[in-house]
């Protein structure tokens, strides 16, 4: 019960932040240079046409009215129409079509990275200043120093062109069909419609982006896990466990691991924004036609509604993930009071 209350409280606390982000997006989007009306008009247009288009977009209203209109639309689910990528299509549609690909690489990477990163971090801490530690530490240090897009390019060059064993760019072999759109997640759609070869083709295209993004993420998680593990191993209760006669393996696995996991969870949450940025960069590098592409267009051509939609979506995900991690944190650490 107290847990539900705690979650509820966290959601309440997140609401002002969400509201603030919405306001900030609104203000920033109106501050952006460029006139969105132009994008809706044909090459040559008359003043009347321009004014009519402006009226249609609702830009003649006072700013405050526009703001409230925008808020009400966001909460009723009508996120407006884009006028750059595909003229007149609802933003919602564009996001649903493009977001799953970004989501796929992000989610696969974070899962892979958490599993491997926590493990390597613990191994490094366990063998402090020995060969394994130096090796993982060095690798992690290089990992956090590599620009993700450059790593992507190098992988493309090596595996896509030089050895020619994996597709370098895109998310599907050209000419291959699409599964019927059911859940918008391509992988699941492929399985539902029974088109295994499509799923395989998709996965084959995802290998490099996922490898690229997870490498960077593994590096930062390893570093974090290592340092928190080292800190935990210095604690008195570890000495108590040893004084009890516990095996070194048990000392690490039962006594130290959970304590070391707690700060790591926080850091993973805080770095999630970085992960999303990394996902956007990766997906642009590999030309997956994901959210990043749409975002770039939206910013370049001042597409208010598209930009707002994307930012809103990302913020909601960010807040949700942090909420989940908060709950996990409370679950891991009994010292937290709900």
């Amino acid at each position: 019960m107290s847990m539900i209350k705690y979650i509820f409280r966290r959601i309440l606390a997140a609401l002002p932040v969400l509201f603030g982000v919405l306001t900030l997006t609104f203000i920033l989007s109106r501050l952006m240079p460029g006139d969105p009306v132009l994008a809706t008009l044909p090459e040559r247009f008359t003043t009347e046409q321009y004014l009519a288009a402006r009226e249609a977009l609702g830009l003649n209203e006072p700013l405050l009215n526009q703001y409230f209109d925008y808020l009400s639309r966001v909460f009723t689910g009508d996120w407006g129409q884009t006028y750059t990528i595909a003229k007149g299509r609802p933003v919602w549609d564009i996001i649903w079509l493009r977001f799953p690909r970004t989501f796929d690489i992000a989610i696969f990477s974070i899962i892979i990275a958490s599993i491997i990163g926590l493990k390597t971090g613990v191994i490094a801490a366990k063998h402090r200043n020995k060969f394994r530690d130096t090796f993982f530490r060095g690798l992690a240090l290089i990992g956090v120093s590599i620009p993700v897009f450059w790593l992507g390019l190098i992988l493309q060059f090596l595996f896509g062109y030089y050895f020619d064993i994996l597709p370098a760019v895109g998310y599907k072999t050209s000419g291959i069909g699409d599964p019927p759109v059911i859940t918008y997640l391509r992988l699941i759609d492929c399985f539902i419609s029974g088109q295994w070869y499509l799923a395989l083709d998709y996965l084959e295209h995802l290998i490099l982006p996922i490898f690229c993004l997870s490498f960077i993420t593994i590096a930062s998680i390893t570093r974090q896990a290592r340092s928190s593990m080292l800190e935990v191993l210095e604690q008195d209760y570890i000495r108590t466990a040893r004084a009890k006669g516990a095996k070194e393996k048990d000392v690490i696995n039962t006594h130290a691991r959970k304590n070391a996991l707690i700060p790591s969870v926080t850091i993973i949450g805080l770095n999630f924004g970085g992960l999303l940025a990394g996902a956007i960069l990766t997906e642009t590098t590999f030309n997956l036609h994901g959210l990043g592409d749409a975002l770039l267009v939206a910013i370049r051509y001042t597409d208010y509604w598209l930009l707002n939609g994307i930012v809103f979506l990302i913020t909601i995900i960010f807040i949700l993930i942090n909420l989940m991690l908060d709950v996990l944190y409370a679950f891991l650490d009994p010292r937290i009071r709900y």
């Binding site: 002002p16 603030g20 982000v21 240079p33 924004g273 940025a277 930009l307 930012v311 990302i314 960010f318």
Partner: peptide
């Protein structure tokens, strides 16, 4: 701190792109 929270929740890369777009 609420303002800081909002800034932290806003994806940094996007905020940077938007700000650069606004400022020039």
């Amino acid at each position: 701190m609420r303002i800081m929270d909002i800034m932290m929740a806003f994806p940094a890369l996007i905020l940077a792109m938007v700000l650069i777009n606004i400022f020039g």
